[in-house]
């Protein structure tokens, strides 16, 4: 018999026990220092992500993969075009509905001045529905601020600032996995459960007429739009219909977000 990993089982277990204790201590230290350890991890992760993104762009520009480059460029351009058109269509829908009814009921904070911040991490890599932006306390970002997909009017709320550092901030998506928000669809209030990746689902009364493409609003975000209805599943045996919704913009294609201060 030969031990192919760590030589001695007892020694190996001791090392694991030591590592586990270190992990607990690191978490404790992080708590005591107000998140200093995770700040370092995020800084490193952000640098690696930014470097990786720029290396990818440079490689694509060198012509090493020229046969695929044209296709990739065309694909990227088409995706951006689709995302822009979707955003425009959805924005139009938002503005129309605002003009029709919502503005009479909810006062939007039009006077809020926000700032544009770059996204400095992957938007889809987090298991907790979070991502990093390159603006923090020094730029006037505050915890609870709303993160929008574009300029304020007619824009969608992507998430909310959940943690702020000096030069960066962590944003939690509105549709983060397992998050539940109160939203309004076709005038009815429903609980929307986040599924991650900018998608969510809800159960609405079966009699409610919900159309695909309809905008979903959330009162807790000042009555702003948070998504559009993607599909509706109605079952006659049930009193509810399932509503699937998502963001009209591709999260992966986003490079900048607009952050506005927000207090409930």
């Amino acid at each position: 018999m030969k031990f192919s990993g760590l030589r001695e089982p007892v020694q190996g277990r001791r090392m694991l026990l030591f590592a586990t204790i270190v992990v607990v201590l690191v978490f404790g230290l992080d708590m005591l220092t107000g998140g200093w350890m995770r700040s370092i991890a995020r800084g490193a992760g952000s640098v690696i992500w930014t470097s990786g993104a720029s290396i990818g762009t440079t490689l694509a520009g060198t012509g090493l993969m020229s046969s695929r480059r044209a296709l990739a460029r065309e694909n990227q351009a088409l995706r951006q075009e689709v995302a822009q058109l979707r955003a425009q269509a959805a924005s139009y829908q938002v503005l129309r509905q605002e003009n029709d009814s919502l503005r009479a009921l909810v006062r939007l904070a039009n006077a809020a001045h926000g700032i544009t911040a770059p996204i400095t991490s992957s938007v889809l890599a987090s298991p907790y529905g979070t991502f990093l932006i390159g603006a923090g306390i020094q730029n006037g970002i505050k915890k609870g601020g709303l993160v929008l997909a574009g300029e304020e009017r007619g824009s969608f709320v992507l998430g909310q600032v959940s943690e702020v550092r000096a030069k960066s901030a962590l944003v939690t998506l509105v549709f983060a996995p397992n998050s539940i928000i109160q939203a309004t669809i076709s005038g009815a209030s429903v609980d929307v459960e986040g599924q991650g990746g900018g998608n969510a689902r809800a159960e609405a009364p079966r009699g409610l007429a919900i159309a695909v493409g309809e905008t979903v609003f959330a009162a807790q975000f000042g009555g702003r739009a948070v998504g559009v209805v993607g599909s509706v599943e109605s079952d006659h045996a049930r009193a509810f219909q399932k509503v699937y919704m998502g963001l009209p913009v591709s999260l992966a294609a986003l490079q900048y977000v607009y952050v506005i201060p927000f207090e409930q």
Binding site: G5, L6, G12, R13, M15, L16, A19, T20, V22, V23, V26, F27, D30, G34, G35, M37, R38, I40, A41, R42, G45, S121, A125, S126, P127, Y128, T130, S162, E163, L170, T172
Partner: peptide
């Protein structure tokens, strides 16, 4: 496959990277 402390390191890194402080 291994008695690897790296597993703990990856787990901690993911949480420190993405989990909001609180």
């Amino acid at each position: 496959r291994f008695r690897a402390p790296e597993v703990l390191a990856i787990g901690v890194f993911v949480d420190f990277m993405w989990l909001p402080f609180g």
